[in-house]
Design a binder for these strands. Structure first.
Length: 902
RNA sequence: GGGCAGUUAGCUCAGCGGUAGAGCACUGUCCUCACACGACAGGGGUCACAGGUUCAAAUCCUGUACUGCCCACCA
């Protein structure tokens, strides 16, 4: 016998281990599912970074994937869901650097080799944690296919991709202004830069003219860069500065003279209309510098300190300290005209949140234009679809305005760039000052080349940089199947079927997978992509360690059970919406799990014999109204779930199951089934049991993708009574799709329910004690309704707690009775001594007012000739019925009130 | 500066052309033999605002006001 309350932990632990032992989720190439379907359903996991443990966002992402994976497995397709992790480049390296710092070490003191060795150890631990959490979450992953973005197979894919793009001339090395993170010590791509609104200032600085004229005042948010200024630019059309272009200005705090140049780029309306030009430290200034052939003076070094070029007074200071000192010095020199508050957006590193320093350096880039074109075509032709499709527009726009991708990173953790340089050709300097050696010509190779084809030299150094972590991620959908090898799994499982991820990595990852997939394999790596929102805290704020609002999935799973946790996420995961996550929403799902548990417990309690209760083997004539009704509702629910899952709306699907199970099955059907289960008619008992088993087990199986553990447990408990194959739910398959909708059953049951509800409301309003059985006399109504209610008097008696239900042909209200009106009939509830008649009159008057407002609305509709003429037939019909019903109800209530007043 | 969402019950959100829905919270009654993580009943909304289309608009169109997100090189 099952416990009274569901306790998740033991059940989850048991099935997790059992599934693992059965190797249940492994898919072999060429496998044919029990359903005979050949085409596999394939998903690759968005590999979590090996930076620590999983967060709620991962829980949502993987729950959604698990839902579709299990759903397709249930529907009979071969399925493969590939697990794995991402080495995570900068993010992971900085986690390790923090650890080292705590030990008073740095990666430099450790050296590259030892550092990488430690990274390997850390990665192993971290992978175990993450994969363990995924298993705990119930994910039906193909554990034998676990992959890592930096293991050997993936390294081969990366090299092949690099080689291919290099061969097409799409990978090049160039000297560019890049986004440099001083803190992480590396270049970043444009999409790894985020913008943050910060309070800043606008410093107005006077640059005097060399010839003694008034010179110009420039406005800047970064005074520390002024030491690197090599010009001042004004708009040639600016009347204030006519004749200034070509003149020389004295750069304050230095002994340098800089020219004034005219450039259309300058916005005359901003600041003073004069722009200081620092080609080495600003992307726009870099371009102005190129247009006017200005020198670039680098005053900030890659480590964020002022260089020698900044002059002896500032060299060695941090950029922040330099700013303060420069402002002081300008003030002292009388050249600081004014300072105003100026909030503006600052570019920051997406990993460490520190201000980005634009710096010119030699980096590797991927030419993106040619790569983007096929990706746009794939979208436009429908070979690639985004769900919800509102993402299509921004996605296309991004691809259309794409810029070259900086793929080299000056860190150690990653795929080393497979390019080598001959020391003899480039000189010894290349060993130490790699990034300063312009025009270095490299040789593509994984291992050190034997000899230089130019000079025959045999000493080489490898490019010290590693690839952007997203470079290897971009290959994931095929690298996991060991591309470029023509492996059986690549052939069978690729292209994959669906990708599920959050919108925050749409460009960073999704777009790049599409581009790489199309370029390297000729196919869109997945034809569909479900984009979900971000899990936020209950007040809508992003979860972050610094805010202290992070929810730990493990804690939630411990406290409420994995199924409840999953369900609470999914039921809120509406397309395109973020999810505000409150712990209180899990209680609801936990209660739902408990409801499932207890309804199964109830059914099991009433199944004395171990035999198969087969609906197919049942004489359909034995089905009574509530059976037919619940079967129709059940079929409707199954259809709704399928429909919603097929258009990637898992929240709506989950809601349909929740509503059906609780509001229909438990609240009505189970209560009505009790009549027969507690009766003596064995045939009737058997019918009720059969329908209970059929509907409950089918619902559990349909619910399995959402709540895998509890449904597995309950299905196992029901199995001796269900004629379904397989050891596990995923082998049992989806519930049979039904035949007819049985509108008649739904209509008739609706009438019964209306009467029940009306009578229950009356009981409640009159404060009739629940234990007290009442006597009811009905009157009026159509013959059809009368007969229906007569046939199902037992329903009314059981659900309303009636001891005697009779029909009064003359329709006269018995004395000492209160009246409920429903289904076109009056129900007089006999309550001698329990009714205060003035109160009863008041109650009726209120009812009448309610009906009257309803009646007014519908009447105005029915009196509208245009409505009658133009609205569809079915609508008019519906309105007419409603009108008749309301009028009948109104009349009955008035009648009763008159009788009461008499 | 562009683009995209959103504005519906106290809270979080569905609904997206035919008389306003769910969960939670709230009120009342009940520990009725599956479940108090429960049952039954109830209160609560001029669906942001202003126009328009339509027989009919929370739902379509236009505009306004807020809110959030994304993109963009304005010092």
């Amino acid at each position: 016998m099952l416990e009274k309350t569901y306790s998740a932990q033991p059940v989850e632990a048991k099935w997790s281990a059992t599934w693992r032992a059965a190797d249940l989720f492994h898919g072999e190439p060429g496998a044919v599912a029990p359903g005979g379907e050949i085409k596999p359903f394939v998903v690759v996991i968005p590999p979590p970074n090996v930076t620590g443990a999983l967060h709620v966002g991962h829980a949502l992402d993987n729950t959604l994937q698990d839902i579709f994976v299990r759903y397709h497995r249930l529907s009979g397709r071969p399925v493969c869901w590939v697990p794995g992790t991402d080495h995570g480049g900068i993010a992971t390296q900085s986690v390790m650097e923090k650890q080292l710092k705590a030990e008073k070490l740095t990666r430099l003191t450790l050296g590259r080799e030892k550092f990488l060795a430690r990274m390997q150890v850390w990665t192993r631990q971290c992978k175990n944690t993450i994969l363990g959490q995924l298993e705990r979450l119930g994910c039906a992953l193909d554990w034998r296919r676990e992959a890592f973005t930096m293991d050997e197979d993936r390294a081969e894919s990366v090299y092949e991709a690099f080689k291919t793009l290099w061969g097409k001339g799409w990978i090049y090395r160039g000297e560019r202004m890049v986004n440099w993170c001083v803190h992480c010590g590396t270049a970043l791509s444009d999409i790894e830069v985020e913008f943050e609104d910060r309070k800043g200032h606008l410093w107005h600085i006077h640059y005097p003219a060399v010839d003694g004229g008034r010179g110009a005042v420039v406005a800047t948010t970064r005074p520390e860069t002024m030491l690197g200024d090599t010009a001042v630019a004004v708009n040639p059309k600016d009347s204030r500065y006519q004749g200034l272009a070509g003149k020389k200005l004295r750069l304050p705090l230095t002994d340098r003279e800089i020219p004034v140049v005219g450039d259309e780029y300058v916005d005359s309306d901003f600041g003073t209309g004069a722009l200081k030009v620092t080609p080495a430290h600003d992307a726009n200034d870099f371009e102005i510098g190129q247009r006017h052939k200005l020198p670039a003076v680098t005053v900030i070094s890659p480590d964020g300190h002022m260089t020698e070029a900044a002059g002896p007074a500032y060299a060695g200071l941090s950029r922040e300290a330099a700013r303060d000192k420069i402002v002081e010095d300008l003030k002292a020199a009388g050249l600081l005209e004014k300072v105003t508050d100026y909030p503006h957006s600052v570019a920051v590193c997406y990993r460490c949140n520190q201000a980005i320093e634009p710096l010119v350096s030699w980096q590797w880039f991927v030419r993106m234009e040619e790569l983007a074109k096929p990706a746009i075509t794939a979208l436009d032709s429908g070979r690639f679809r985004l769900y919800p499709d509102s993402w299509a527009k921004p996605y296309r726009q991004w691809l259309g305005n794409i810029r070259d991708w900086c793929i080299s990173r000056q860190i150690w953790w990653g795929h080393r760039i497979p390019v080598w340089y001959c020391v003899k050709c480039h000189g010894e300097r290349i060993k130490t000052d790699f990034h300063q050696v312009a025009q270095a010509r490299g040789v593509l190779s994984v291992a050190q080349p034997e000899s230089c084809r130019v000079c025959g030299g045999s000493e080489f150094v490898q490019d010290p940089d590693v690839l952007d972590t997203w470079f290897s991620s971009a290959l994931w959908p095929f690298s996991v199947f060991r591309w470029p090898g023509r492996t059986p799994e690549l052939k069978f499982f690729y292209p994959t079927s669906l990708l599920v991820t959050g919108y925050e990595i749409l460009y960073l990852w999704v777009a790049r997978m599409q581009m790489m997939g199309l370029a390297l394999t000729g196919e869109a790596p997945f034809p569909e992509c479900l984009i979900h929102g971000i899990v936020r805290d209950k007040s809508g704020k992003k979860m972050s360690k610094s805010l202290g609002n992070v929810v730990d999935p493990l804690v939630m799973m411990d406290k409420y059970g994995t199924d409840a946790f999953r369900f609470s996420l999914v039921i809120q995961a509406h397309p395109g919406k973020d999810i505000p996550f409150a712990e209180s929403s899990i209680t609801g799902s936990r209660n739902f799990a408990n409801k499932l548990w207890n309804s199964t417990r109830f059914v099991l309690m009433h199944l004395p014999e171990a035999k198969i209760y087969s609906l197919a083997g049942l004489d359909r004539k034995k089905l009574e109204l509530c059976d037919r009704w619940i079967l129709a509702e059940y079929q409707a629910a199954l259809a709704a779930v399928r429909e919603k899952l097929d258009v990637y709306e898992p929240a709506a699907a989950a809601d349909a199951l929740y509503g059906f199970l609780w509001d229909k099955f438990c609240d009505w059907y189970v209560e009505l089934a009790k009549i027969r289960l507690q009766g003596a008619d064995e045939i009737a008992k058997n019918t009720a049991r059969t329908v209970l088993v059929e509907v409950l087990d089918g619902t559990l199986r349909m619910l399995h993708p959402f709540m895998p553990y509890i449904t597995e447990e309950l299905h196992a408990a029901l199995k001796p009574f269900v004629g379904v194959p397989g050891r596990f739910v995923v082998e049992a398959g989806l519930p049979r799709s039904g035949d007819q909708t049985d509108d008649a059953a739904r209509r008739d049951m609706g009438t019964v329910m209306e009467a029940v509800t009306a009578l229950r409301t009356l009981r409640s309003q009159l404060n009739v004690p629940p234990g007290l059985k009442i006597r009811v006399v009905s009157a009026g109504g159509s013959q059809e309704t009368r007969q229906l209610l007569d046939r199902h008097a037992d329903y009314l008696k059981a659900l309303v707690h009636i001891e005697e239900l009779s029909y009064s042909a003359d329709g006269v209200r018995p004395p000492h009775s209160a009246t409920a009106v429903a289904a076109g009939m009056s129900f007089y509830v006999m309550l001698q001594g329990l009714i205060d008649f003035s109160q009863e009159r008041e109650r009726l008057r209120k009812e009448i007012v309610k009906v009257e407002t309803e009646l007014t609305k519908i009447s105005s509709k029915m009196e509208n000739k245009d409505f009658l003429a133009r609205a569809p037939q079915s609508e008019v019909e519906l309105a007419r019925n409603q009108h008749d019903a309301a009028r009948a109800r109104h009349e009955r209530l008035k009648e009763t009130l008159t009788m009461l007043s008499a």
